[in-house]
Simulated assay, not measured.
Amino acid sequence: MAIEKVKEYFKQFGMEDRIQEFDVSSATVELAANALKVEPARIAKTLSFKKDEHALLVVTAGDQKVDNRKFKDYFGIKAKMLTPGEVDEMVGHSVGGVCPFAVSEDVEIYLDESMKRFETVFPACGSSSSAIELSCEELYKYSRAKGWIDVCKGYN
């Protein structure tokens, strides 16, 4: 199960105990916000796109949508989301638990600027009933992101 891979990943940093698991689903922004009792915007949702023959992850604030023009301008390709089967195969996590931790080696990860307005955000941890609270600096460090980008609608 992917959550075990994420726990093992965070174990090297002594942070596996910070992972929260719920008795309810956190598979969507709304469900995660309800499980955590936080505003939906603080959920760090991980979107999976196809770039050539590998996956590209963009982590955004829960209240944001990707702007196709900004995405194309930044990456030079059309924003084409992966199918659920491709997400499993190319990222290593299933839809509902996709996160930027313990992913397949060739996955590129980017963080959207929309999250920087919060002290902490809550990305999933490999299952549809988990999350971890991280500062934006921690998210950047532990996700091994290539950088901060601005590809969302109406933000900035």
Rank of each mutant, 00 (worst) to 15 (best):
N156I: 09
R18T: 01
Y142V: 02
F118E: 03
V38C: 05
Q20L: 15
K70D: 03
E137R: 15
L56R: 03
L31N: 15
F49D: 03
Q64H: 08
V91H: 09
N156G: 14
T120E: 11
A32M: 03
V107P: 01
F49E: 02
S127N: 07
I3H: 05
E16F: 01
L111M: 06
L31T: 15
F13K: 11
S48N: 08
G14Y: 05
A79H: 00
R42C: 12
R18G: 00
E39C: 02
Y142I: 03
N68L: 10
R69H: 12
L139S: 06
N34L: 13
K5P: 00
F122V: 13
G147P: 06
K80S: 13
Y9D: 02
E138D: 10
R42K: 15
D112C: 05
E119H: 12
L36I: 13
S94M: 14
E86L: 11
Q12L: 06
E138K: 08
V95H: 10
K80A: 14
F71T: 08
G96P: 08
S26Y: 04
Y9H: 07
F75C: 10
E16N: 05
V38T: 03
K11E: 13
D52V: 01
E53M: 08
D88E: 15
D63Y: 07
S143Y: 13
G154V: 00
K116E: 10
L31P: 11
F101A: 08
S143I: 11
P100S: 13
S94T: 15
M90W: 11
E105S: 09
S25L: 14
C99F: 06
K37C: 07
R69A: 12
A41I: 09
K65I: 11
R117L: 10
A131P: 03
H54K: 15
D17C: 01
A55Y: 09
R144T: 12
E105Y: 05
M1H: 09
T83P: 05
V58K: 09
